Simulated assay, not measured.
Amino acid sequence: MTDHIIIGGGVIGLTLAYSLACQNESVLVLERGTCGQETSRAAAGMLATDIELREELHALAARSRRLYPLLARRLERETGIDCGYREQPFLLKRNGREYVFPSVGQIDPRRLTTALMSALRKRGVSIEEQVDVTRICENEDTVRIESNEGEWTGRTVTVAAGRGSQALLATAGISIATYGVKGECLAVRLAGEPLPSILFDDSVYLVPKADGRILIGATELPYDETVGVRVAGVMSLLQAAEQLYPPIRDAVIEEVWSGIRPQTESGLPYLGVADSSRRIFLATGHHRHGILLAPVTAEILANTLRLIQKEEVR
């Protein structure tokens, strides 16, 4: 039996698994596809300023920003993988006003996922991919997971499966309310001098990466969970990007993609133990801020889960 089962192999689930593994807890990660290849892969990795966030998230975001450089350095020491953490100027245009921040952090979600996977495997964490969980059954002392690949039992389970969390939790009689928001993005490469800062306005953002790419995003299409990228979406992003930064017209498009972000009606994520449960925990509904809030989400949940483990050992 495993101490902690985590359903969902995106950045949030993997960061939680890593936090628990660092405390010598036994962890199993179950992912329905390939880890890090859904919403996490689509994210730009900006560690948003408070102007972009609901006030209720400010304290969590501040803590998460402090944790990120520590996490990135630790992962690089353990795996040799650079997660792309960097700090750079940030220009935000909102409602006709300009805000200039001398230093705002960003991370490369794809590199971060790779580093987390490598670190977890080095620590002996089991990661099972292509596992379609069909049911969660909570008992007095354990939680049983049923899937297309068999059954697993753990002392706790944390559901961090993005938009899929709602249906999974329903199998355990737990109700949450989320809806999908599709976001389309593209990556371009611009010859010459690199873009020196992140640019962000009401219509588009441009995020320069360490490898020379510039990420442009993102459309927001509530209740759209279709696969693929629309021509109209790409055109709208490129037009807005050119208005914000005219040299972008000479860039070469390298990649386009989309992702489905889980949103809640309140705009706040589900974080903590599920209602009427003792062993089923939630880490979902982060919408655009899943990458930003991953370290603090992991910290909060890992502390709670370790306390449960210690109490039961006593």
Rank of each mutant, 00 (worst) to 15 (best):
Y245L: 09
T297Q: 04
G33I: 08
G84D: 01
E311K: 14
A294R: 00
G228Y: 13
G212A: 11
G45D: 02
E138C: 07
G150R: 06
W152S: 08
Q309N: 10
T79A: 08
I6W: 09
E255K: 13
R163I: 12
R32I: 06
I107T: 07
E151M: 06
E184R: 06
G36F: 06
A274V: 11
V207I: 13
E255N: 12
A210Y: 02
I51Q: 06
D141T: 12
A115Q: 08
E225Q: 09
R94S: 14
A177M: 10
V204P: 01
W257L: 08
V181H: 03
P262F: 05
E149C: 13
A160Y: 03
V104E: 07
P69T: 03
V231H: 08
P194E: 10
R288C: 02
M235Y: 07
G96A: 07
N139M: 09
V252Y: 13
E312N: 14
L282G: 00
G272R: 08
G150A: 03
S147P: 04
L307Y: 11
I253C: 14
E312Q: 14
G173C: 08
R77L: 15
R144I: 06
E138F: 02
G192W: 04
G45C: 14
D3Y: 11
R94I: 10
W257H: 03
R144E: 10
K182Y: 01
E87Q: 15
E311T: 13
P295T: 05
D211F: 11
G154H: 01
R121S: 14
L282H: 00
P222H: 10
S26G: 04
T114D: 10
R73E: 13
Q130P: 01
